[in-house]
Structures are given as structure tokens and as C-alpha cells.
């Protein structure tokens, strides 16, 4: 592995993605919604509603059932809180943590699609394959080009989110309360794994499609596991403790490993070139 080559590929891909507004615009808008707009709505809205309405919300039958069935540790974390505070902790402290994984998976799969299908679509892949760069160097370079920005963007989003939750949210909560312990695991351990997953997904999808747009639409599927985590939590099947978060990370890393074996078979000169019928 020649790191000068890998670095050059990663930088080149990164430069190229920056030239594709279609690719990066959503990766900036979505974090803004997740980290600023939605939290502010959730923090500010209950306060502006009359107490009666907020109370009604809490008396919703489903929600009551949900609260009654909370795992003990989660129940403990909201013990003694008023209704607005409970809402904030449950939604922003727990429900949002798997939702947050949309950031790394979306960013890395969009960049990954641009760097694989984009390169096929724009007919630049061939010249790349004629260079002495090894298949592993190509793959690693493209992987880093997708994963590093995805992780950094998520961390930046997390910092902003923390700020919002403790400033605007702090007014309601009366103290600095965020991050909850399991967030650290989500951000430091699960996020990189999910970013790699997004990239692998993009590679596998890219092998089957012809254009960036097509890949882009298909990568939407990658968000499904994240949605399932969210549903799992809402349904009370899952409580994101430090340990559970760690376990989720472990599972994702394992899936990454399996997909890597698969991807290394797709990312060979023979496979990439054999699929190209030429001009």
C-alpha cells in the first residue's frame, strides 16, 4: 500500500465531490435540520403550547403505554422531570440518537456513489485503471474520501446539537444535561462503522447502476436500518444504553467486514473494465 497514492486518490475524489453540488448540498441541509431546526422545534414548541395541550399530548394512550413500559434505566433518567423536560429527554436524548446515524450513512454513500458511478459515468475510470495504483489503493483512497468527511461532518453536527440542547434546551432543563453517556459510544464507535457501511453500500449499488442519479436514489435504501433502529426504540424493543450502542457498533462493523470481502471482488480491474462496453 502506497500512502502517497491513496492520499492522492482521496484528495482527488474529495475535490471532485466538491464540484458536484447535487452531491454535497443535501449533506449540508440534512445536518442543519437534524442538529438545529428539529431540536429547536421540540424544545420551543411545548413551551408555546398552552399547558393543557402539552398535558393532552402526554395523556395520549400510546404514549402512556410507552412510558409505562420504559426500561428501568431509561425510566430513571426521566424520573422527577416535568412534561416538557420528559419530552426533551425522550425525543432528543434517546429517539434522536439512532436518527443521527443518518448523517454518516448519507454523507458517505453520496460521496461513495459520486466517486464510483460518477467515475464510470464520466468515463474517467478507465484512465485510472491504467495507472499502476493497486486495486486496494484505489479502494482505500475512495473509502477515505467518503468516510473521513462523513465522520467529521457528523462530529461537527454533534457539537452543534450539543450546543443547542444545552443552551436552548438548558433553559427548560435547568442544567447542562447533554450528551447522555450512550451518545459518546454512538458518535465515536458507531458513527465510523456506519460511515463505512454507507460507502460499502454505495460500492455495491454502484456496480449495478449506470448513473450517479440512479445510485443516489438507491442509496436511500441504506437509511432503512437506521429507521428500524428508531422504530425499535419507539416500540420499546430497544433501549439505547452504552452497552446496546456498543453492540450495535459491533454488529455494523461485522457487516462492514462481510461487505468488504464482497466489495473487494467488485473493485477489481477485470470486473470494472469487463462491465465497460467502451465508447
Amino acid at each position: 500500500m502506497n500512502w502517497r497514492t491513496i492520499r492522492a486518490i482521496a484528495l482527488k475524489d474529495w475535490r471532485e465531490v466538491r464540484g458536484n453540488k447535487m452531491a454535497w448540498a443535501p449533506t449540508l441541509i440534512v445536518p442543519l435540520i437534524f442538529c438545529v431546526v428539529l431540536p429547536l422545534l421540540i424544545i420551543v414548541l411545548p413551551g408555546t403550547l398552552s399547558n393543557g395541550e402539552a398535558g393532552d399530548m402526554m395523556k395520549d394512550a400510546d404514549l402512556e403505554l410507552f412510558l409505562a413500559n420504559l426500561p428501568p434505566a431509561m425510566a430513571a433518567s426521566i424520573a422527577g422531570l416535568n412534561e416538557s423536560q420528559t419530552m426533551i429527554v425522550l425525543l432528543l436524548g434517546y429517539l434522536f440518537s439512532p436518527l443521527f446515524l443518518i448523517l454518516p450513512i448519507m454523507t458517505s454513500s453520496v460521496i461513495g456513489s459520486d466517486s464510483f458511478v460518477g467515475e464510470k459515468e464520466r468515463k474517467t475510470m478507465e484512465a485510472l485503471l491504467y495507472t499502476p495504483a493497486t486495486e486496494r489503493e484505489l479502494f482505500t483512497g475512495k473509502m477515505l474520501a467518503a468516510v473521513i468527511p462523513a465522520v467529521l461532518l457528523t462530529w461537527a453536527g454533534f457539537a452543534v446539537y450539543t450546543l443547542v440542547l444545552n443552551s436552548a434546551g438548558g433553559v427548560v432543563m435547568g442544567r447542562v444535561w447533554f450528551p447522555l453517556p450512550h451518545w459518546w459510544v454512538m458518535v465515536l464507535w458507531v458513527t465510523p462503522a456506519v460511515a463505512v457501511l454507507g460507502m460499502m453500500g454505495a460500492v455495491v449499488i454502484s456496480a449495478r447502476v449506470k448513473s450517479f442519479m440512479e445510485a443516489y436514489q438507491n442509496t436511500g435504501l441504506l437509511v432503512l436500518p437506521v429507521i428500524m433502529l428508531v422504530i425499535g426504540q419507539v416500540a420499546g424493543l430497544l433501549y439505547l444504553s452504552v452497552l446496546v450502542a456498543f453492540g450495535i457498533g459491533l454488529v455494523v462493523w461485522l457487516i462492514d467486514g462481510i461487505l468488504l470481502l464482497f466489495a473487494l471482488r467488485i473493485v477489481t480491474r477485470a470486473a470494472l473494465m469487463g462491465a465497460d462496453k467502451g465508447a
Partner: peptide, 15 residues
């Protein structure tokens, strides 16, 4: 040791 001029220019247009 080999240089190949491909049929399509294979230039990175955004660079």
C-alpha cells in the same frame, strides 16, 4: 512503464 491514451479523454473535468 506504459502510458495509455484512452478512446475517451478520461479527463477529470472538475479539476
Amino acid at each position: 512503464r506504459s502510458g495509455v491514451l484512452t478512446e475517451t479523454p478520461s479527463i477529470y473535468e472538475r479539476l
